[in-house]
């Protein structure tokens, strides 16, 4: 199964990190993959987005234009990308920060108040990973344990204490 995933939000919300988690999951599962960030002034607080392709074939264009999985964490990104989701695709929306509701009937939308859930669970800053949890659950793209292995690879040993909170966030997303 091939996936073209687009993650979008504000700089600082961990959009690129969430994309990295997916990319490392692909690496661990021995899939072909690419990870492409938007770069430039975005990293100083503007909008950030990140394309991740996971496939069984070599990746062609790494820039995701019409995703089958979309994760959005702010209103402007929702407006910009919701119309591009492939028919049959899925959108994962942080409903704490995105007020809009989608009227498309050809895609499935999951409204997760990820930012609020993160605060309620003492996991400030982990809304991105909560949404990743929801995404892997609903799309079946990766196993929970793969995410753990990915986090172990990404997070440097001296910050290993951050793995469990992240896994907790994954679980919250999966269970929502």
């Amino acid at each position: 199964m091939n996936h073209e995933i687009l993650l979008a939000g504000f700089g600082g919300q961990g959009i690129l990190f969430a994309g990295k988690v997916l990319a490392y999951c692909g690496l661990i599962d021995n899939r072909e993959l690419s990870w492409l960030p938007s770069y430039g002034p975005e990293m100083r607080g503007g909008t950030a987005n990140c394309s991740v392709c996971i496939s069984d074939e070599p990746i062609g264009c790494p820039q995701v234009i019409d995703p089958d999985l979309l994760m959005v964490m702010n209103g402007p990104s929702y407006d910009k990308f919701i119309g591009n989701v492939k028919p049959g695709g899925k959108a994962f929306i942080d409903s704490t920060l995105v007020e809009q509701k989608c009227e498309r009937s050809d895609i499935e939308c999951f409204y997760v108040p990820a930012s609020q859930l993160a605060i309620d669970n003492g996991l400030e800053g982990s809304a991105n990973i909560i949404l990743i949890g929801k995404m892997i659950k609903e799309s079946g793209i990766f196993e929970e344990q793969t995410v753990r292995k990915a986090l172990e690879k990404i997070i440097p040993p001296k910050r290993a204490h951050l793995i469990e909170p992240n896994m907790k966030a994954v679980k919250i997303g999966m269970d929502f």
């Binding site: 072909e32 993959l33 690419s34 990870w35 492409l36 960030p37 770069y39 990746i59 790494p62």
Partner: peptide
Amino acid sequence: DGLLGQMMEP
């Protein structure tokens, strides 16, 4: 180019 420089691949 910027795309190749910025992207990650295995």
